[in-house]
Simulated scan of single mutants.
Amino acid sequence: MSGIKRLLQDYKQLSKFKLSSLVVLTASAGFVAASGEHIDYAKLGWTCLGTLGAAACANTLNQVYEVANDRLMNRTCNRPLPAGRMGRLHALAFAAVCGASGLWILNEKANGLTAGLGAANILLYAAIYTPLKQMTIANTWVGAVVGAIPPLMGWASAAGELDAGSAVLAAALFFWQMPHFLALAWMCKADYMAGGFRMLSMVDATGRRTALAALRHSLYIAPIGLLAVLAGFASEPFAWEAAALSAYLVYGSAQFARTPSQASARKLFKGSLLYLPLLLVALGVHRLPNQHNVDWDTLSGRVLDCVPAEARLQLGRACAVLEGAAAQVSDRLVENNIKCPSKAYGDSEELHTPRSGQQQDQGQQLQAQSAEEQQKQKP
């Protein structure tokens, strides 16, 4: 392999090109979902290019930080940095070029909000999620937040703002990542352990806990299609198609939970790989021109209209109980932690009215002060 071709291949590995391409796909889905009657394909292209640069930057910084860990893992030991084909300064320069150019494109060709989301995601991925991977199993949930931001970037590029509909796509990406990465973490459990990464599968000898977490998030993603319809950017067939896709994901997660194994985890992982592109293609086919006239109150009202009256009544009662309990806890905290009576109980007359002895003392003090002032005023 020639030197230039080898270098380009190394850059491709640094950027995790397949993963970055998936990020671009989710950003483009956000752009399409937020567009009106006509899609601005030129702006969409610039948004995809800028998003690709930001994603490549974040992925490269991740590898710069994890050189020693990657060297210990079979699936990562042949990357440019642990294999010794490239130095850290070279990789940092590549990350800087990708990040700066990507954010500049997003700012100039899209808007400041899109560029700001891109910059925040680089920071969140490289400076927070990456170190957390060696500290706590909660890193998987933080990583899911990272994956939920690209569709927001596409939405912000097309609409110039984020509204209730954008949260639907972000939720879809967040919940999808959990069964996807939990299955991967179980499949590569030994590799992650050798690399010093903290994953849920490492503290789950039977696999049951990992599988149940995957199943739980697969269930959370089930109403995404309906929410997209209620938010006004997709037609009704999308709700049925999204429900069918989520049912397949739930089935794979349930099989993994019933018999945790390499085979069932691999089946769930492959199912998750199939789920996302099919969901986004279905969204593109059934998208409606987005009028951006559905705010949070409207969306929540439409969601409640889908809930049976008896269920809404029970939900209202549960909320009332929770509100009462929260009020009691708040009052108890105030009583136990705030010493000043006026702060704890309000400025009541009872607390601030002096007793009779205090009134006499205060009256004498006032008379003395008045006499002193009169003496000072005499020539």
Rank of each mutant, 00 (worst) to 15 (best):
Ala243Asn: 01
Asp361Ile: 15
Val24Thr: 09
Gln314Leu: 13
Leu132Phe: 07
Leu230Val: 07
Val285Asp: 05
Phe181Glu: 02
Pro289Asp: 05
Leu22Ile: 07
Arg209Asp: 04
Pro80His: 08
Ser356Cys: 09
Gln359Asp: 09
Ile128Gln: 05
Glu350Thr: 14
Tyr251Arg: 15
Ala311Gly: 03
Lys12Met: 10
Leu299His: 00
Met187Gln: 03
Ser272Gly: 07
Met199Ser: 03
Thr114Ala: 12
Val168Trp: 00
Gly232Lys: 02
Ala170Tyr: 03
Leu280Trp: 02
Phe17His: 14
Thr353Leu: 14
Leu19Tyr: 03
Ala127Asn: 08
Thr136Ile: 12
Leu8Asn: 10
Val229Gly: 03
Cys306Tyr: 06
Gly116Lys: 01
Arg258Asn: 08
Ala110Met: 01
Glu310Thr: 04
Pro260Thr: 10
Phe197Arg: 02
Gln359Ser: 13
Tyr345Leu: 14
Asp70Glu: 09
Arg302Tyr: 11
His90Trp: 15
Met1Val: 11
Asp70Leu: 01
Ala326Lys: 09
Ala344Glu: 02
Leu226Tyr: 09
Val281Asn: 06
Thr51Arg: 02
Gln359Leu: 15
Pro179Ser: 02
Ala54Trp: 01
Ala158Pro: 10
Cys77Arg: 15
Tyr345Met: 12
Pro82Tyr: 05
Ala156Met: 10
Arg198Thr: 11
Gly363Thr: 13
Gly357Met: 12
Glu350Gln: 15
Ala171Asp: 00
Leu268Gly: 03
Val146Gly: 01
Arg287Gln: 09
Gln262Cys: 10
Ala244Thr: 06
Gly225Asn: 06
Ser261Gln: 08
Gly195Cys: 09
Gly147His: 05
His286Lys: 01
Arg71Val: 07
Arg302Lys: 14
Phe94Glu: 08
Thr140Arg: 14
Asp347Leu: 15
Thr76Val: 03
Leu283His: 07
Ser264Ala: 06
Gln375Met: 14
Gly3Thr: 13
Asp10Thr: 05
Ala344Lys: 07
Phe181Cys: 04
Gln365Gly: 14
Gly118Tyr: 05
Leu245Cys: 07
Thr259Gly: 06
Leu274Arg: 08
Val64Cys: 09
Ala327Phe: 12
Asp10Ile: 05
Ala205Gln: 14
